[in-house]
Simulated assay, not measured.
Amino acid sequence: MGRVLTTEMAGSIIRRVREERSMSRAELARKAGIGARTLYALEVGESENFGLGNYLKLLEILGLSLSVDVDGHTEGIAASTTNTPELPVLELADIWKNPLGGKSHGSK
């Protein structure tokens, strides 16, 4: 699995999964207790200071979790206690594929 190195990459994961779950930005923002404009800023990489707590809340709502590489060992940090084995594992290479060709979401 690839590394998330920028806020733009982290935000694009939220957007991609939100869209795959057929959830509107307004709906996800409401469930997370944040503004839709704030969520938009995160999704497009404009929010540098979003906060880990808010990001973990979004992951939980979307049924995702976070793992951290500490000295070459991946440590799982569950964002939700309701994660189930049937949830898909997303590879970063798949997240940033652009079906229309050209630049991927993370490219400028």
Rank of each mutant, 00 (worst) to 15 (best):
Met1Thr: 10
Gly2Ala: 15
Gly2Ser: 15
Gly2Pro: 15
Val4Glu: 02
Val4His: 04
Leu5Met: 10
Thr6Asn: 07
Thr7Ala: 15
Thr7Lys: 15
Thr7Cys: 15
Glu8Tyr: 12
Glu8Val: 15
Ala10Gly: 07
Ala10Ser: 10
Ala10Ile: 07
Gly11Val: 04
Gly11Lys: 01
Ile13Asn: 06
Ile13Asp: 06
Ile14Glu: 00
Ile14Val: 03
Ile14Lys: 01
Ile14Arg: 01
Arg15Gly: 07
Arg15Glu: 13
Arg16Phe: 12
Arg16Trp: 09
Val17Ser: 02
Arg18Ala: 02
Glu19Lys: 09
Glu20Gly: 14
Arg21Tyr: 08
Ser22Pro: 09
Met23Pro: 13
Met23Gln: 13
Met23Val: 13
Arg25Asn: 12
Ala26Asn: 11
Glu27Asn: 13
Glu27Ser: 14
Glu27His: 14
Leu28Glu: 04
Arg30Met: 12
Arg30Tyr: 10
Gly33Arg: 03
Ile34Arg: 00
Ile34Val: 03
Gly35Cys: 00
Gly35His: 01
Arg37Met: 05
Thr38Phe: 00
Thr38Glu: 01
Leu39Ser: 04
Tyr40Asn: 14
Ala41Tyr: 07
Gly45Phe: 04
Gly45Thr: 04
Ser47Gly: 02
Glu48Ala: 12
Asn49Ser: 04
Phe50Ser: 00
Gly51Cys: 02
Gly51Tyr: 00
Gly51Ala: 00
Gly51Pro: 02
Gly51Phe: 02
Gly53Asp: 00
Leu56Gln: 06
Leu56Pro: 08
Leu58Asp: 00
Leu58Glu: 01
Leu58Thr: 01
Ile61Val: 05
Ile61Tyr: 03
Gly63Ala: 13
Leu64Gln: 12
Leu64Asp: 05
Leu66Asn: 09
Leu66Ile: 08
Ser67Trp: 07
Val68Pro: 13
Asp71Gly: 13
Gly72Val: 03
His73Ser: 08
Gly76Phe: 14
Gly76Lys: 12
Ile77Gly: 05
Ala78Gln: 07
Ala79Ser: 08
Ala79Lys: 01
Ser80Lys: 00
Thr81Met: 13
Thr81Cys: 10
Thr81Tyr: 12
Thr82Ser: 11
Asn83Cys: 09
Pro85Thr: 03
Pro85Trp: 02
Pro85Arg: 07
Glu86Gly: 05
Pro88Ser: 11
Pro88Arg: 13
Pro88Leu: 08
Leu90His: 09
Glu91Phe: 08
Leu92Thr: 05
Ala93Tyr: 09
Ala93Ser: 12
Asp94Glu: 10
Ile95Leu: 07
Trp96Glu: 14
Trp96Ser: 14
Asn98Lys: 07
Asn98Val: 04
Pro99Gln: 08
Leu100Glu: 15
Leu100Lys: 15
Gly101Phe: 01
Gly101Cys: 02
Gly101Glu: 01
Gly102Val: 06
Gly102Ala: 08
Lys103Tyr: 06
Lys103Pro: 04
Ser104Leu: 04
Ser104Ala: 05
Ser104Ile: 03
Gly106Glu: 11
Gly106Arg: 11
Lys108Arg: 14
